[in-house]
Design a protein around this nucleic acid. Structure first.
Lengths: 159, 159
DNA sequence: GTTGAAAAGAGCATACA
DNA sequence: TGTATGCTCTTTTCAAC
């Protein structure tokens, strides 16, 4: 219940979940961690309740899912409205991720996915209706993820 | 087995997995989709084998996990070595994500997480050892995710 | 491609040490 | 935190539509 301070075991659990968060049960994880499955269950529950783990999502290959075009927009919004606008943007079609940045310019970065080049213009035009300025557009080629892999490796046994 | 063409059911499944990829069984999903749990199991297996679903990961709140500083670097690498360098960067400590962009400049964007301001310099210095130029650094304030939520909503019943 | 059923197996919650 | 029990559920397989 302590609000803070994850220990090595917590990091080890996150490390394992990172590799497969769906098909790996506490019993499975207990094979690679020096504690029992009950403890792992308790720890995961705590991590979820503390908000360290916000949820579990599939890693989707948008290309193979039928959306080969991934476009990143760098936008500038008035600083005081940034969060509000970010939330609005997230509700738009084709938008799958929005980052708020702590900078004066280009403080909102968003990722849009489409399957036709025509839709790019539609997206841009919808964005223009919001109080933000599109500074740049860049095509995303490939995305790599390795969240937290460097943490908790010491506790995990067999790899 | 068909290499291409997801249908509404596939999108519906992705949609549900997006909401909770860990604690939702095919039996649970069958409550919200017009097919049996067996079919859902088959579809998920196919999506995994086709590579549409690349894996399952926890959504981690880095701030609450003890890494309040999230720094995004925009870097430029020689175009022909971009992919190779991106892979190398991903192996570095503190780096949790790397994007390859289809642009001449700032074609590699990476996200680093730390808990102390001092480590920022270390990270930058390690990056400088690689054949890339750091163009910009920006602090990340907040990250929003909504992957695929707009697709497959029609098939999902109770929401 | 989808469904339903039966059997086997496994995880989960609980309580207690 | 660990161990043990019983309950519940999913998964698997297979045959049929």
């Amino acid at each position: 219940m302590a609000a803070d301070g994850l220990d090595e075991l917590d990091y080890g659990i996150l490390h394992l979940l990172q590799q497969n968060a769906r098909d790996q049960t506490p019993v499975d994880m207990a094979d690679n961690l020096p504690v029992s499955d009950t403890t792992i269950r308790n720890r995961i529950k705590n991590l979820e309740e503390q908000g360290v783990i916000e949820g579990y999502v599939p890693v989707i290959n948008y290309e193979k899912a039928g959306f080969p075009i991934r476009l990143q927009f760098s936008c500038t919004a008035p600083t005081q409205d940034r969060s509000e606008i970010a939330e609005e943007v997230l509700q738009l079609p084709h938008i799958v991720a929005v980052d708020e940045m702590l900078s004066a310019k280009e403080n909102i970065r968003l990722l849009a996915i489409t399957n036709t080049a025509e839709e790019i213009n539609e997206i841009a035009s919808v964005l223009d209706d919001l109080p933000l300025t599109i500074e740049r557009e860049t095509l995303l080629r490939k995305s790599h993820l390795r969240p937290f892999n460097h943490f908790g490796e010491e506790v995990v046994s067999s790899e």
